[in-house]
Structures are given as C-alpha cells and as structure tokens.
Design a protein around this nucleic acid. Structure first.
Lengths: 218, 218
DNA sequence: TCCATCAATATTGTATGCAACTCTTGTGCG
DNA sequence: CGCACAAGAGTTGCATACAATATTGATGGA
C-alpha cells in the first residue's frame, strides 16, 4: 500500500473522530509535518479524500473538511434510500437461490442478536445485510454507488441502534424487505426498503435533533 | 484553472477520441513530455481521471486506459436506467410548477427538432431534457451520481440518434415520461423512464453489435 | 472613520532529483 | 530445451526546491 493511501486513511479517521472539525482548513505543510512525510503524498491523499466527499478542495485555496449542511445531509439520506430501494428491487428480481438462502440465514442470526440486545454485533451484521442486497443486484456500478453513499453517511449513523427498541424495530423492517425479496416481489421490496431507510433517517433526526429542511414553497 | 485540470481534460479527450486505446499504458514521463509539463501535474491529472473511471491506476504499476468489458458496460447501462428512473420518480413527486412548465416547453422544442431531423440539436437538447429531470429531484447527491454515470457512458452513445427513426421514437418515449411527471404519477414516470433508457441501450447494441451478457444459470 | 490599494507573507502549484519497486531479459543450471 | 534466478533498466513514489497566486495587514486618501 502506498504512503498516500495510508495517509488518506489516517486523515479520514482524524476527521471522522472529530479531530478536524467541519470547515477546518487542512494545511498541506501542517499535515506533512504531523505525519512525518513530505507534501507530495499529502496532496495525493487529499485528492483521494476529495473524491469521497469528505473534504472540499478548491484550486489555489486549499482543502477544508466538508461542512455538511442539514439540507445536504437530508439529500444524502434520501439518495441513500432511493439507491437501497433500487438494490432491493433488483435483488428481488435477480438474486440466485443461494444468495436468497444466505440472506435469510443472516437475517435469522440477526434476530438472535436483536433479542440479545447485542448492538455491536447487530450493527456489524446490519452492514453485511445491506451489502448482501447491494451484491444481489449483480451490478458492480450500483454496488459502488451504494457503498460510497454509505461511507459518506457512516459518521452520522454511529448511534443508530442506541435508541430504545430500535434493534427489534430494525429487524422487523428487515423482515418485510427480506420476505419481499424471497418471493421476488420487486415493487414490495422497493417500497419496504424505502420505508426502512426513511425510518433509519428519522431515528437519526431524533438522536441528533436535526430537522429535515422544510419544503420551499416554490 | 490549474494545469492538472487542463491536462485531465486533454488526456480525457485523447482517450475519448481513440488516440489512447483501451488497455494502453499511460506513461507519466511520456505524457509530461507530450504536453510540455513535468510529471507532477500529470500525476494529479491521472488521479482525477481515475476517479471518473476513465483510467485504472494500480500502485507502482502505472495507469492504463480502462478496458470496459461488455458485461461491465451492460451493468453501467442498467445502473444508469435505474438512476434515471429514480430521478423521474422524484421529479414526478416534487418538481415545482415552473420546472414542469420548462420541461414541457423543452419537450415541445425537441419535437420540432425531431421533425426537422436535426440530430445534433436534438442530441444537445436531449442532454438538457435528462439534466432537467435530474435537477427536478432537488437532490444534489442524485444529480451528481446521474451526471457521473452519463459521463462514463457518453463515449458509447455517440451515434445514439443515427439509427433510422430513433429521433421520433425517442421523442415519443420522452412524451410518456413527461406526461407522467406532469400529472405527478411517480410509478408511471419510473416505469416509462426505465423503458426509455432500456430502449436507448438496445439501440446501442444494434449499432455496436454488442450483445448483453446472458444470465448465468446459477 | 471607512474604504481602497499595495506590499508582505503564507500557501498552493509545479519542477526536478533521488529512492524504491517492478518488469524484463539474459544467463546458468537441471 | 525449459525453468529459475539475478541483474539491469525503466517506471513509479516521495522529497525538496522554486514559482505563482491568494490572503492579510498596513498605510494612505477621501
């Protein structure tokens, strides 16, 4: 692995851990000093991060940690929901029998985790569940888009399963999605996933106190 | 505009014009000599192009023009169709009256172009038509995804409207989409756009002789 | 007192040179 | 004759130095 890639990871961690707050300026020389490298790999790392949306770069004006406005965050959640729903639709249409069985098995294991109130295990399995539905599209372009969006939203979902009862609720919502996929009901899979992700978003809003932007009366 | 960005554009043009064929190795020093700059901006330009999917970069192994397999291309078309359909759905739900009127006006102008068999004007307006539907989602994340996909597919759509009768057909398909959006029929807008983009894909296959990959009997 | 302009400084963009790694090619051994 | 290993060349990754531009502060005038 190249130094720039390692750097990109470390800087990303620093951002996600809140060490660099949104809007903070990322000085190339400063980062170079901090990580004991020259500016060259720092620049390449910053370009990598810029493509993930974690930082903003403007020519001759340096890099800053992206300040996600609540409006933009809301848009990201909506986009995520639409993409996930699309993946669920395609999975309902085209998942192989093996993929369906595996998804079902995973869901049952997650039921045990939910009953055991094991939030960490459930969160990990949850990622696997959604990833399986991405993969079920058999479409690498969609997988890439979905994975990208999830990464951009991940910092805002940390406490996702901390809300009381959220674990069982999530599992119940998954079940609706799962059953629709298993019986090949594309429309229902789409609708159920859309509802699931919207509820995740609501849970986030409750936790963070963020309000969705009101519709502008154009 | 910085030198690296200009370079990225020029190299992209060279690739899209076929000067650098898929699979061709892109030597940093060679490009630097060719464009009369040093390797540094060339490296940054290559990183930019790598994010667009136009080239592949592997650490220590250089950059090559991406070879899109017909399977991958098929996946990109499917993804494009799904995203466009999603945009149409959201547009049907949330476009402002002004946006709806503008879309309708554009569609009518495109009717004139189609009747005049003006392929170039129509192709340009076609981009505007689809862009308007992206914008109608009021979701910058989706707009970005859709625009990105379109750019990656653009080299394969060049002769899109050359097929005989394709112009009138495209306009008729647009009309179904448009009417669904105008009356706020989300499901119909989704379905109509999906059909439209699939037909575009078919037209491409006819022109290029590419076959969609058969379903693997898993 | 406020605004505009200019200079100084700091930061980014680019060039060049060196180090590390990969790939090729040639040679020797089986 | 084929394969493995090593040495060499060539290319990429990184560091350093220089150039160009943005930002900030001060100073002068209105």
């Amino acid at each position: 692995m190249t130094r720039a890639e390692r750097l990109a990871g470390e800087i990303a961690d620093a951002i996600l851990s809140g060490e660099f707050v949104p809007g903070a300026r990322l000085d190339e020389q400063g980062l170079a000093d901090r990580y004991g490298v020259s500016r060259t790999p720092v620049r390449e790392a910053l370009r990598l991060l810029a493509t993930t949306g974690l930082i903003d770069m403007r020519p001759r004006r340096g890099a800053t940690v992206t300040q996600i406005t609540s409006e933009h965050l809301f848009e990201l959640f909506v986009a995520m929901g639409e993409i996930e729903a699309t993946c669920a639709r395609l999975s309902a249409l085209g998942m192989s029998p093996i993929e369906r069985r595996r998804l079902e098995a995973l869901h049952e294991r997650m039921g045990d985790m939910a009953r055991a109130r094991n939030e960490d295990s459930y969160a990990e399995a949850n990622v696997a569940f959604h990833s399986a539905i991405y993969a079920g599209t058999h479409n690498s372009a969609l997988v890439e888009i979905a994975t990208n969006l999830r990464r951009r939203l991940s910092p805002f979902r940390r406490a996702q399963f901390r809300a009381p009862g959220r674990l069982a609720l999530s599992h119940a919502e998954h079940e609706v999605v799962l059953l629709a996929i298993l019986r090949g009901d594309a429309a229902q899979a789409h609708a159920a996933m859309l509802r699931h992700v919207n509820l995740v978003e609501d849970a986030f809003e409750q936790l963070s106190g963020t309000q969705p932007p009101r519709e502008k009366s154009a």
